[in-house]
Amino acid sequence: MKNIAILIFPALFLFAFGLAPDANEILKKVEENMSSKNRVFESEMVIHGRRGKRTITARTYSVGDKQSFTEYLSPAREAGTKMLKLENQLWIYSPATDRTIQISGHLLRQSVMGSDLSYEDMMDDRKLTEVYSAKTIGEEVLDGRKTYVLELTAKVDDAAYNRRKMWVDAERYVPLREDLFAKGGQLLKRTILSNVQQIEGRWFPLTIVFKDMLKDGGGTEFRMTKVQFNQDIPAYLFTKAALKQ
């Protein structure tokens, strides 16, 4: 109890006197830090299922938030499978069947590869600042880092999550943890971001753990390796024709 009081008191104090940076400013800084013209990264996704864990690696090219192209590299079964996202459309290509299947509408809500993420989660491409208005509700120390605690409330009707709580590293402007809430206040998902590295001058969290809080299970771990920003990505990559190559 005492500890919480110690933590919260200065936060309230600062907040009351307007000494903390404006929450929307913080959010903007976070977005500036996290987004880039384009980026290319390789990733490992570790999924904890009831049969143990499995790891999927992939290389992703993305431009802005609207276009992304992912090619799965391993395991062997998934290698060569490609996923193309343009705006709110999604296609998956499998080399084994030489088929391009469109995933649309309701199917987007299915889990990706058995993870705690749905296709839709991966497709949510709007900027946080477009969707949410933020408010600083305190400061906390998380894993030894000072963080601002932001509360994000949806300002549009069609946000997937009505409210989010975000812990932002006060120095590097990188989110370290995020809780996603239902309209009714129920905690639905938790994201823990860690392994924050400086890449090409910006701080970037390389490991993200997603956890669906309503169901039992180990959650999904997403680790980025080899992140590059502002590369030359040929435009044809973001066409359906590129899927077949």
């Binding site: 839709e120 069609d158 997937a160 009505n162 239902a182 309209k183 009714g184 129920q186 639905l188 309503l214």
Partner: peptide, 15 residues
Amino acid sequence: LLIRWRDKNGTFDAL
């Protein structure tokens, strides 16, 4: 019983 659904706009809700 905990249930989770999405409203007309796709916003998650649970209770």
